[in-house]
Simulated assay, not measured.
Amino acid sequence: MKNALITGSTKGMGRSITISFANEGLNVAICSRNEQELLKFKAELQTTYPDIKVFAKVTDGSNKAQLLQFAAAAEQELGFIDVVVNSLGSFVPASILDEGDDVFTSQLNTNLMPAYELYRHFGKTMKNARKGHFFNICSVASLNPIAAAGAYSVTKYALLGLTKLMRYEMQEHGVKVTAVIPGSTLTDSWKDAVVDKDTMVLPEDIASAIINIYKMSTGANVDEIIIKPAPGQI
């Protein structure tokens, strides 16, 4: 049985992606800072998918030490990690000149560092095994920066750059790397806004795309996939 590790696992895209991999019969490793939410989601997964293993560990994914402890513990519990989905991220709506002093560091540690560190942790193992798949959840801000979200845009730009570099390093070793680039997606970032869900991408759409990419033949890799709202960006 194969294993998938997903960060940002209990909400939004991460939650939908986790459910989709569980539905495909993969064991899943999940994490969250919120123990109550994490244990509730673990119980839901185990009830719905009794044939898979669910490894859960309370983790602040923006903390390098905790993140790597989660990665190592997931390997010990499940074995070889076949899929890594870097779904952890946060959106700060402020221009660079208006951002607080700690925003840039916080955005780096949330939007970029986890993907970098998990690649360093799992990349060599996947390279030696000549199999595996990394999915990095980027953003349309990775392609076109948003002036009203300065540090977010910078870190998402960097995440897409990291993803491309990962792909160049891994492609000769049979390891796949995909940048998933969503537009306006109905996650907690929009919880205080009044929006029509029919004008937005849903987390389930992102999960569906990832699963279909994952199920492609061994010789096929989707380098990048852009998923935007049909009526245009909000």
Rank of each mutant, 00 (worst) to 15 (best):
N3I: 05
I6G: 06
G8T: 05
S9E: 09
K11R: 15
K11C: 09
G12L: 01
S16W: 10
I17H: 08
S20P: 09
F21N: 10
L26R: 10
A29M: 06
C31E: 03
S32C: 09
R33I: 02
N34Q: 04
Q36I: 14
A43S: 11
A43Q: 10
A43C: 01
L45V: 11
T48A: 15
T48P: 08
Y49Q: 08
K53G: 05
S62H: 01
S62F: 02
S62I: 00
N63H: 13
K64Q: 15
Q66L: 10
L68W: 10
L68R: 10
F70K: 03
A71N: 01
A71H: 02
A71G: 03
A74L: 07
E75H: 02
E75Y: 01
Q76F: 07
G79A: 07
F80Q: 06
V85I: 09
L88S: 10
S95E: 14
L97T: 09
L97S: 14
E99A: 11
F104P: 01
T105E: 14
S106H: 11
L108Y: 15
L108S: 04
P114K: 10
A115K: 01
Y116H: 13
Y116P: 01
Y119W: 11
R120M: 12
R120W: 08
H121R: 06
H121S: 08
F122C: 07
K124E: 13
M126A: 00
K127A: 13
K127P: 04
N128G: 06
K131H: 09
K131T: 07
G132Y: 00
H133A: 02
N136Q: 04
L143E: 11
N144Q: 13
P145V: 00
A149N: 03
L159Y: 00
M166T: 02
R167L: 04
Q171M: 07
V175C: 04
K176C: 08
A179G: 10
G183H: 11
G183D: 10
L186E: 12
D188F: 04
S189F: 14
K191R: 15
D192I: 11
D192S: 13
V194Q: 14
V195Y: 11
V195E: 05
D198R: 15
M200Y: 13
M200H: 12
L202V: 03
L202G: 13
L202R: 15
P203H: 00
D205S: 07
A207G: 10
I210H: 07
Y214Q: 09
Y214M: 09
Y214N: 11
K215W: 07
M216E: 11
G219W: 00
N221M: 08
E224Q: 14
I225T: 11
I225L: 06
I226R: 15
I226G: 13
K228A: 13
P231I: 05
I234P: 14
